[in-house]
Design a protein around this nucleic acid. Sequence first.
DNA 1: AAAATAGGTGACCAAATGGTCACATGTCAA
DNA 2: TTGACATGTGACCATTTGGTCACCTATTTT
Lengths: 106, 106
Amino acid sequence: MIDDDRVFKALADPTRRFLLDRLFARDGRTLSELESELEMTRFGVMKHLRVLADADLVVTRRSGREKLHFLNPVPIRLIYDRWIDKYTERQVSALADLKSELEKQA
Amino acid sequence: MIDDDRVFKALADPTRRFLLDRLFARDGRTLSELESELEMTRFGVMKHLRVLADADLVVTRRSGREKLHFLNPVPIRLIYDRWIDKYTERQVSALADLKSELEKQA
DNA sequence: AAAATAGGTGACCAAATGGTCACATGTCAA
DNA sequence: TTGACATGTGACCATTTGGTCACCTATTTT
């Protein structure tokens, strides 16, 4: 366990979670595209993407003058494994489903 | 999605993750017991437990002059559901297992 | 009842964090 | 080859956050 701190710190910011949500919906977006969806300068978005990349939650690939961003779900899975007991997994899952159902209605 | 920010902010601190780890190992600990495992004053630990409770990651029950703390895994499960696609779940799980295996050896 | 135990509040301070800007490099199109 | 486009760096500032302390209340124990 050496890089878990970077992951949790990266997830702690709402803008960065929004970026992950956008990449979860569709991968391979550029900085400019992501910037256009946020009330923030390009520099702010760039910093956030840097933090996500350092945490390995986002991986990138250059293509000409563009840089494409992709979501990497592996670190998320590791969080889950840390505090969800295998034996109680089913009950927790059922409770979580119930909670999101209730929130949908409200 | 109203209280997710409190959850992620709560998880962003290493001391708070350590507290969750201890409660995952065994529930129902008191403030004093948790304090004794940390290089920090009681007040610091109290603040951290307050943050975890506000995020609903920890629930408490009073018993006389003691206050017992319990881990609540539901918010963790909700994080998982947010960014793990149901269709790719198996592959991600396999990758995560591989990563933790490699880290054990290193 | 007195002393020890367990937990709680508000003020305070140093350090980390989120965001902007001036400036700069590399790439594509006309 | 000139200009527009896409991304990158370092300095800077306001706000948030992690931690301590003086002081306080409630519950045992002797």
